[in-house]
């Protein structure tokens, strides 16, 4: 099992996202006694492993992850699809939950929900994803 920190760094280097930000590199789990609160940035890094196969870019960069909430032993994620007509929604939701489970064993309860409000729009993609898909005429 990869340590969460190195897992995230490895994903970052694989994706070409550069060094972790100061805030992210400082993130540490908070031990509340029985359970641990994992940093949100670790969850985000775990979700970078889930790719949209059609474009080969991860769901974080595509702006499909709307919210991440962490509490002792728990992780809750709200994510969306580009459209409700996409049949891959439930599968990507389960892949997201699995990616968190593998990367963050501290999270005993993982709840990933598919939400449709607000609807996904192309401007939710990261600058790196837009560039890779050819925005700006590149």
């Amino acid at each position: 099992m990869a340590k969460p920190r190195s897992f995230g760094d490895r994903l970052r280097s694989l994706f070409g996202g550069g060094e972790p930000s100061a805030a992210e590199s400082d993130a540490k789990p908070v031990d509340t006694g029985d359970d641990v609160i994992v940093p949100e940035s670790w969850v985000r890094d775990a979700l970078r492993k889930v790719l949209d196969p059609e474009v080969g870019i991860d769901i974080v960069e595509l702006g499909l992850v709307y919210a991440i909430e962490t509490s002792p032993g728990r992780v809750r994620v709200d994510m969306t699809m580009t459209t409700p007509s996409c049949p891959s929604g439930p599968q990507l939701r389960d892949e997201a939950a699995y990616a968190i489970k593998v990367a963050l064993p501290e999270a005993r309860e993982i709840d990933v929900r598919l939400v449709w409000d607000p609807p996904w729009t192309p401007d939710k993609m990261s600058a790196a994803a837009k560039k890779r898909l050819g925005w700006g005429g590149s």
């Binding site: 196969p53 059609e54 474009v55 080969g56």
Partner: peptide, 16 residues
């Protein structure tokens, strides 16, 4: 179609 872009990716994305 974004296939014009994604054809330069690898693996399944390129195949599609």
């Amino acid at each position: 179609d974004i296939a014009r872009r994604t054809v330069h990716e690898r693996g399944l994305t390129r195949f599609i």
